[in-house]
Design a protein around this nucleic acid. Structure first.
Length: 885
RNA sequence: GGGCCCGUAGUCUAGUGGUUAUGACGUCGCCCUCACACGGCGAAGGUCCCCGGUUCGAAUCCGGGCGGGCCCA
């Protein structure tokens, strides 16, 4: 087996230490990408994964790692289960962060260079980032089909985005409308709600009198500069203080117009005076009220963050300056009654921390049919189930349609022109796509007036418009759509983007093809730092996957990912990674031991005559295979891995191998043969079950195992996952019971040695054992390095009942509230009566009634009494062992 | 402020109505036994957040409280 590059030392021996770094890098080089290529024509059942396209920031972070580990476990498992798996990979390239990075990188502002030039810089920057991230992903052994890679900033992809826009527009599902949007006055762009950060700050709450005399009302506001934008005053309908003011019109200070006092339940009577001014727009609440009550629109803040001509004499001032001036004027007029400090949450631009403003402009929208979306969402299987309710609560609370236009550059262009003459909206025909309306022109004159003068739309699409068609894009839509594989099998994603990516994808899939996008959606949690908090630069608790891989390898990192419960947030801990790498060492040691004893052995189809211990461990192996399959089927990788680790480490290595060692070193040929058969069978199954989670370790061990028995060997990742049917013939309840007893006897006698200060391999003079069930004196003797005799008769040991333990699961339902009394009486019985109870049953008087107690409802705890003998007695269940030192 | 999740040994964690509550790390003993000292064997360590309810029986179900986390406003 030397010379094939496995984890071998210079002398050709398998290395004692498992060198994860070396082994993994070797396989990264050796593995071929085409192992994971997906074939549409394959007869196997198809399993298509709608992989998230990450944002190419340049570093594949630990949250991505968790997500992709889950995806890869699923992909590898399904492949080994006989599915044709598609694990594509995309990149969600467009967006503000890249524009900002490029600006700082080249020391320019986006408008300093032509649009096309700026785009090019963004594309180049993104391509570099993608390369960096791909390297990490390959090092982590993700079994991605790179031939299916898609990149949203390339025309091949964004043409699809534009087609989707055109088709939805033609169906009336996309429209242009007037709507408030949030924007940053410093960056001079609209920003998504998701891009707003909230900061706790202190500000002044100003009490200001509107109107005069009888016709006046005092409101409280933190934003006096918006007074010229006031369109109404609102009070709570049950607020007695304002009962006679409702419907009244008051003059707005600093202006020459009046507004009405209206009622609304959403006004907080305890805040300020209980009267609030509604402006267009101070915050989202204003927008809500404005819509609900059909109020006027008075936009006084422009895109430059300054007040406009509608603000009268304050025009041209920044909000800060306007605030000062207005307060000054109000003070002079005696309208500023008082000011108080208040805590306030201010929405700020996530990038420059400038407080955001709300302005109203013409925007493009996608119509949201909430009922239809909800109905579709409920047809999808959600894992874990409760994640559906997150989507439901979001959709039910949605107030506006989806704003899809952005005033940026690096994004998919909106394929639309406006006729300079008649204002007609001209939407591109599908065959014209891809287009950039800022430089391309429509191929036909205006259908309404015949003009050829057009203004191209300079707004671009929200990046979610790109990413919300991924399941369609990977199934070939719209050219050669493989609708037989739609809906796709699975969407894996994080819970932070349920309201965006998951929701938008459902909406778009319904709009474009009237089907749900996936049969199942699996939601992963977030990764928290070792302190249990979300990883963030300011907390300094960020861990990079590269760092973990560097220190402990990808398999250890992947095992860490597998220990989390799907859907729950996972804390990153180094000790979990260390524990994982220790398991790898343990497993490697098992394989080394296995290889040593299998060298030259010939794989056989039928099993040899098996001894008790062999039947015992094989039966347990069958149970493990069953449990692992079931855990993997429902994405409980933690349970699968835990079951494998426990079996391999404790049942197999610590117990079975210890028992069988003596037979392997000094047994007869038959004794060796059955043990070898087990060594091979168990290692073979364990390696294949580990393959989805620790692909490197599994591949290395697979090659070692097969080469030492001279078997043909291809990648373990092309092999079948162990199925329960293949192992069901080993299921042997009796052998499990007997084997457990044997294991416990050995453990007890070891404990005895330990208590006497003897080494565990110290020979004992003689062990005599009586057991009601089969045991194997050969193996027990081998494990304890002692001679073992089996006694046919149960020897006389004086015993007495120490305690009677009731089986509450039987007594409870039967006797209900009398259980307590029964147990009390039973425990106070004399010894002979207790004995009678547990052998033939007993009638008792309980609360004046006679109850008949059956022996199987109780378990006797016995105490042995050995009268001054030098022999030690060890008991396990009904079995007894006498040990002579 | 809203939605969702969680509270179990020093730390992290399994466990959705029934014997003595799981495991890991850490701690403390003993053992370098021919696969592994990154190992083996053993020990100590718990008011299962608090209060109330349902039940013969609650870590588990229900209500309330307190505390933490994530997402959103």
């Amino acid at each position: 087996m030397s010379g094939n590059g496995n984890n071998v030392s210079d002398s050709g021996e398998l290395k004692k230490e498992y060198e994860a770094g070396e082994v993994e890098e070797k396989w990264v080089r050796k593995w071929k990408d085409d192992m994971y290529y997906f074939d549409w024509n394959s007869k196997k059942p198809h399993f298509i994964i709608d992989t998230p396209p990450p944002y190419p920031t340049g570093s594949f972070h630990i949250g991505n790692t968790l997500n992709w580990c889950y995806i890869d476990f699923i992909a590898r498992y399904r492949r080994m289960k006989g599915y044709e798996v598609m694990f594509p990979q995309g990149w969600d390239c467009h967006g503000l962060p890249t524009e900002v990075k490029v600006e700082t990188l080249y020391g320019i502002k986006k408008n300093d260079v032509p649009r096309e030039e700026f785009r090019k810089l963004c594309v180049e920057f993104t391509e570099k980032n993608i390369e960096k991230m791909k390297k990490t992903m390959k090092r982590l052994a993700f079994s991605i089909d790179w031939s299916k890679e898609f990149i949203t900033m390339y025309p091949e992809y964004y043409t699809k985005t534009q087609i989707s826009f055109v088709r939805m527009y033609r169906k009336g599902l996309i429209y242009r409308g007037y709507h408030p949007v949030t924007f940053c006055p410093r960056c001079e762009t609209t920003i998504a709600l998701a891009e707003i950060e909230y900061r706790q700050g202190k500000t002044k709450l100003n009490y200001i009198r509107f109107g005069d005399g009888e016709n006046s009302i005092v409101i409280a506001t933190t934003r006096p500069e918006l007074i010229p934008a006031c369109v109404a005053i609102a009070v709570h309908p049950e607020d007695e203080r304002f009962r006679d003011k409702v419907g009244m019109r008051v003059k707005v200070p600093t202006t020459d117009y009046e507004v009405e006092v209206i009622e609304d339940e959403e006004v907080d009577p305890d805040y300020g005076t209980g009267a609030v001014m509604i402006c267009t727009f101070g915050d989202k609440q204003d927008v809500r009220w404005w819509k609900k009550h059909g109020l006027d629109l008075r936009i006084i803040i422009g895109r430059d963050g300054r007040l406009n001509e509608k603000a009268g004499k304050y025009a041209g001032k920044t909000t800060e300056e306007a605030r000062k001036a207005i307060l000054e004027d109000l003070k002079k007029e005696g309208r500023l009654l008082r000011q108080e400090e208040v805590e306030q949450n201010v929405g700020v631009c996530w990038r420059c921390k400038t407080p955001i403003e709300i302005i109203a402009e013409e925007q493009w929208f996608v119509k949201i049919d909430r009922e239809k979306a909800l109905e579709a969402a409920r047809k999808i299987k959600w894992v874990p189930e409760h994640m559906l309710s997150r989507l439901e609560s979001w959709v039910e609370g949605m107030e506006w349609d989806w704003v899809i236009s952005r005033q940026r550059i690096f994004a998919t262009p909106i394929p639309v022109w406006y006729c300079r003459k008649c204002g007609e909206i001209v939407v591109a025909k599908e065959e014209w796509l891809p287009v950039d309306p800022t430089k391309d022109r429509p191929k036909e004159p205006c259908p309404k007036c015949g003009s050829t003068e057009f203004e191209g739309e300079s707004d671009v699409l929200d990046t979610w418009m790109d990413s919300s068609i991924t399941p369609l894009a990977i199934t070939g839509w719209p050219y050669e759509w493989k609708d037989f594989d739609y809906p796709t099998s699975l969407r894996p994603q994080g819970h932070d983007i349920i309201r965006t990516w998951a929701f938008y994808t459902i909406v778009r899939s319904l709009a474009l093809v009237n089907r749900i996008p996936w049969k199942e959606i699996v939601i992963n949690g977030m990764v928290l730092g070792e302190d249990g908090k979300k990883m963030s630069k300011s907390l300094g608790n960020i861990i990079q996957p590269d760092e973990v891989v560097e220190k402990y390898g990808a398999d250890a990192m992947r095992q860490w990912a597998a220990t989390g419960v799907i859907g729950s947030d996972v804390v990153f801990t180094w000790k979990e990674v260390v524990a994982a790498s220790r398991f790898q060492q343990k497993f490697w040691s098992i394989i080394r031991f296995t290889a040593r004893h299998l060298r030259g052995w010939k794989v056989r189809d039928s099993e040899p005559e098996l001894r008790l211990a062999d039947r015992w461990i094989l039966s347990k192996l069958a149970g493990l295979v069953d449990a692992v399959n079931r855990a993997m089927d429902c994405y409980r990788f933690d349970e699968a891995l835990k079951a494998i680790r426990n079996f391999a480490w404790y049942e197999y290595a610590d117990n079975y191998l210890e028992i069988v060692k003596n037979r392997l070193y000094s047994g007869s040929d038959e004794e060796k043969e059955s043990a070898r058969f087990v060594l091979y069978t168990v290692a073979n199954a364990l390696i294949r079950m580990l393959a989805p989670i620790t692909p490197f370790l599994a591949e290395e061990c697979w090659h070692v195992l097969l080469s030492c028995v001279n078997a043909k060997c291809r990648s373990v990742h092309l092999e079948r996952f162990p199925e329960f049917e293949d192992y069901s013939r080993f299921v042997d309840r009796k052998a499990e019971e007997c084997g457990d007893l044997m294991r416990d006897l050995i453990a007890e006698i070891r404990r005895l040695k330990h208590d006497r200060g003897l080494a565990l391999n110290a020979p004992l003079r003689m062990i005599r054992i009586y057991s009601p069930v089969e045991i194997d004196p050969r193996d027990i003797g081998g494990a304890l390095n002692s001679k073992v005799e089996v006694l046919k008769e149960k020897p006389e040991v004086e015993e007495r009942i120490k305690e009677v333990k009731p089986d509450f699961s039987v007594l409870g339902p039967k006797f209900r509230d009398r259980v307590k009394d029964i147990v009390k009486i039973v425990n106070s019985l004399e010894e002979e009566e207790k004995e009678k109870l547990v052998t033939e049953g007993l009638k008792l008087e309980v609360g004046g009634e006679t109850v008949e107690l059956k022996p199987e409802w109780f378990r006797a705890v016995r105490e042995k009494v050995v009268s001054g003998k030098v022999v030690d007695v060890v008991e396990v269940g009904e079995a007894v062992a006498f040990v002579e030192f």
